[in-house]
Amino acid sequence: MQLREALKTGLRTLVESGVPSPELAAELLLMHILGRHRGYLYAYPEAEISEEITRRYFQAVEERATGKPTQYITGHQEFWGLDLEVTPDVLIPRPETEHVVEAVIDLARRQGFERDAPLRIVDVGTGSGCIALALAAEFPRAVLFATDISRPALEVASRNAERLGMAERVKFLETDLLAFFLDARAPGQDFNQGPNENFLGAFDFVVSNPPYVAADELDCVQREVRQFEPRIAWGGLERGDEV
């Protein structure tokens, strides 16, 4: 089968299934299966693809047609120029979450911090680690702590840090929000000396992208999020703003 024909067939399936941005999804899935960039799809539309590649592509298309997000099929999502691993254990990083990173950079600049400042930052509810790793990339001398209540999510985040060469500067902690720091001394102090109510003073910035969807709004959430992304990461609390 020609590449162009496979792409056309995949697109038709996604359109009929009501998948958002079907053209983009069809292309991303084929790029993933082929291991090629988008330019290849446009440069060689008449290229013949093997039966095995065709089978795997249509299988991926069928998965996407069920509502499963493209990122969970490919296992990747770009965030702040970083290629991150994503699995159903973590919320898929959104472009709008980059505004959190931008806000920290802007605030640091206005407070007089240089890019090489030895900042101490904590990211609460880190998920894939996207915010913490983006900040680690922007502030090469910063030390970051990233917390999450989900061990599987922390495993994904840790793999991302390792692959990006940031494992030494980003410390992942399995804890509920900031409970670890409330139960012990803040970073840079003796953790064995009991609670430290002023632990926030040990950090230059505390950042988070917490769950925000209220329980009575769940039916309004996009199918891809509601059925496939971990609810603990995006909502289900009574009001949605408890965290």
Rank of each mutant, 00 (worst) to 15 (best):
E48C: 11
T97F: 07
D183P: 01
G201W: 00
G129T: 08
L28Q: 05
H99W: 05
R38T: 06
H76P: 00
E48M: 13
S150C: 10
R4L: 11
E217C: 08
V122L: 08
L133R: 10
S208T: 14
N192E: 05
V104R: 14
V143Q: 12
G75K: 00
D190W: 03
E46F: 10
A103F: 09
Q71Y: 00
L91I: 13
E238P: 01
S50E: 14
E23P: 00
H76G: 00
R36W: 00
D89E: 10
A215F: 07
L164W: 01
A161I: 06
V61N: 03
R141S: 04
E78K: 04
V101A: 12
W80A: 14
A137S: 14
R151P: 01
C220V: 04
R169G: 02
F203V: 12
F181S: 11
G35P: 01
P187Q: 08
P88L: 08
F113N: 08
I53H: 02
P152G: 01
E52Y: 02
G39Q: 04
D123W: 03
G127N: 08
A157S: 07
V213N: 06
S158Y: 03
V101D: 11
F191Y: 03
R239Y: 00
R231E: 10
N209R: 13
L3G: 13
E46H: 13
P152Q: 04
I105D: 05
L34Y: 00
E155S: 09
L177H: 03
L7E: 08
D204Q: 11
V19N: 11
A6H: 13
F172R: 12
D219K: 15
E174L: 15
S17D: 11
A146D: 07
F113E: 08
E27T: 02
A25W: 01
F203R: 11
G129R: 12
P152F: 04
